[in-house]
Nucleic acid binder design. Structure first.
Length: 560
DNA sequence: AACAGCGCGGTAACGGTATG
DNA sequence: CATACCGTTACCGCGCTGTT
């Protein structure tokens, strides 16, 4: 193959004025509320991080502690990421930023102000170096991670964290051309402090067209992650104490999967010479594709044609433009294809659609009946879109009233307790169990509803964490996941009703019932006492001894 | 001999509840 | 609302065993 055909080897002219830099980008994808409110959080907002920061950041010391970044635990690092993400949105206009204490606590999922102070102190006490080649910045000069302080808003009496970042860091972000997109909400779910240090490196790789595996000597990787050891380097300790928890933690990342391999060296004692980390390509959602430009001429046609599509199933112009750049088709063409696809779906929802063959029309109808309506339906359709072979003369009649009106959920207020969140979520599930529409106009049939409700049998999803599910509940959910759909629905409905009425003893009772029906001995009822890490099922095999692959998608919480 | 695997035990951090 | 307290979890030093 001639080299000139390969676009990866084409170089961009340096210092071109029209090259986009950080200052030109918003740098944050998603709604701001998605960081502090779980229900908008299902969209998984992302924030960019300049590549040079990821590649060259080194922790050097941390207050009185000897070890670098001693105070930077998983939680304090999560707070750092939250502050960086909040600042990114208004970075080009401001130098001093602030977030409310309530938001920070909501993001971290903590109740105590005291804890928040500890994390802020850890951030203030941690110094790092970067290798920036910019004027006025000595490459080895230590800079604080961020400088934070607490203050009270005099008018509203609201407590806030005010903070600023070292100006070279701000400059670098605004000038950066190469960056990684980080799933900001992943950080708050990490439980190992080293995960936050490896994840950005992997994210940088996952966003690239060519993803060469990262090859490290174990000691080199340990050093980059800031793991300290005394005496001789001990591979077993490093792998069990750092890499295993990190790989396990990375299941909270939705966009890509990580696999690893360890390569043996030669010599006595079968030493490990290399750790190889590989990532899959990061997936992209429809709205993350740039909006294709459409001519006024084409726009006129689109708008004229819009009049023939019922508003409930009419994708917005923006969606069409995103889809145009994803598929390479004309926006007008896509609009037509969507309308045709909808006719076929409405006429025969059981028929598979799209490339994979696993998506049926029910998926689209369910999305249409859901809270995000046509936006989600169109996105689901285009995600798996396969251009159809058109047959002349094939028509179907679309009745604008054959689809239930989308159910609109009120936006959720902040800072609710876990019980309130659980209650609200339980009501959503009950709603879904009743067929999404009280009048019963659209009731999802078998394939889609099985897919939908089975996802609630994962004890790892928030609703079960919120009610602090016991071992019995986790085990019962495992039984339900294997059960017939009707059995699943009946028990799920009972458990969700109990949660909705905040009768948690009842949940436990139902769980025990399910277990005894399945002839499994329930453990001694433990509600309401918390029993530690009870809710992870089926992750034991995720990390094999020598090499393995952590499936990050299995953790998809509410699976829409 | 040089290394990985493994487990014990101690300390700091975390998360929740009770108390002022 | 803030602080004290306590059980659980994360982290780490260390030494022993088995394999190459």
């Amino acid at each position: 193959m001639p080299v000139s055909d390969n676009r990866f080897f084409h170089r961009r002219t340096r210092a071109k004025k029209n090259v986009l830099t950080g200052a030109d980008r918003r740098g944050y994808q998603g709604s701001r509320e998605a960081m502090t409110d779980y229900f908008t959080g299902v969209e998984q907002p992302r924030v960019e991080r300049a590549a040079v920061m990821i590649r060259t950041m080194k922790f050097i010391r941390s207050g009185e502690h000897k070890a670098p970044a001693a105070g930077m635990t998983a939680k304090s690092h999560a707070l750092y990421e939250f502050l960086m993400a909040s600042a990114r949105i208004e970075l080009s206009e401001k130098e001093l930023f602030s977030v409310t204490v309530a938001d920070a606590k909501a993001y971290l999922g903590i109740q105590h102000c005291g804890r928040l102070r500890e994390y802020v102190e850890a951030i203030n006490n941690t110094e790092v170096t970067y290798d920036f080649r910019i004027k006025g910045y000595a490459r080895s000069q230590p800079v604080p991670l961020l400088s934070c302080s607490f203050e009270t808003d005099e008018k509203t009496d609201e407590q806030r964290i005010a903070y600023s970042m070292p100006s070279p860091v701000r400059d670098v972000i605004l000038k950066s051309r190469q960056y990684a997109m980080l799933e900001i909400n992943a950080f708050r779910n990490f439980s190992c402090k080293y995960t936050a240090r490896l994840y950005p490196r992997l994210a940088l790789l996952a966003g690239m067209d060519i993803r060469k595996s990262l090859v490290y000597r174990p000691e080199e990787l340990a050093e980059q992650l800031g793991w300290v050891w005394t005496g001789k380097f001990h591979f077993g300790n490093f792998f069990n104490r750092v890499m295993k928890p990190v790989l396990e933690d990375l299941r909270h990342v939705y966009r890509f999967r990580v696999s690893y391999d360890v390569k043996q060296g030669s010599g006595r004692g079968s030493p490990i010479a290399e750790i190889v980390l590989s990532v899959t390509r990061a997936t992209k959602k429809l709205r993350e594709y740039p909006k294709a430009t459409i001519s006024d001429f084409e726009l006129q046609f689109i708008r004229a044609y819009d009049l023939h599509i019922p508003p409930r199933i009419r994708p917005s112009e923006d969606l069409l433009r995103h889809a145009a750049s994803k598929t390479g088709l004309e926006a007008l063409d896509i609009q037509n294809r969507w309308k045709d696809a909808y006719k076929r779906i409405a006429a025969n929802p059981d028929a598979p659609i799209g490339r994979s063959g696993t998506v049926t029309g029910h998926y689209i109808l369910l999305a249409l009946a859901g809270p995000r309506g046509v936006g989600e339906a169109f996105e689901t359709w285009i995600e798996d879109y396969e251009p159809p072979i058109l047959v002349a003369g094939q028509t179907a009649i679309v009745d604008a009233d054959d689809v239930a009106a989308p159910v609109i959920y009120a936006p959720s207020p902040r800072s609710r307790s876990r019980i309130e969140l659980a209650k609200e979520e339980a009501e959503r599930v009950l709603h879904a169990l009743n067929g999404f529409d009280p009048s019963g106009a659209y009731r999802p049939k078998f394939p889609i509803s099985a897919f939908y409700f089975e996802s609630y049998c994962d004890p790892d999803i928030p609703i079960w964490a919120w009610i602090d599910a016991s071992q019995n509940v986790a085990a019962a959910l495992g039984v339900l996941a294997q059960a017939e759909l009707d059995t699943l629905k009946i028990h799920l409905r009972r458990m969700m009703s109990a949660i909705a009425t905040q009768d948690f003893a009842k949940v436990e009772e139902i769980a025990c019932e399910i277990l005894s029906e399945a002839r499994l001995a329930p453990a001694r009822p433990r509600f309401p006492k918390r029993q530690g890490n009870s809710s992870i099922i089926g992750n034991d095999e995720a990390i094999a001894c020598n090499s393995g692959c952590v499936d990050l998608e299995s953790a998809d919480a509410l699976g829409h």
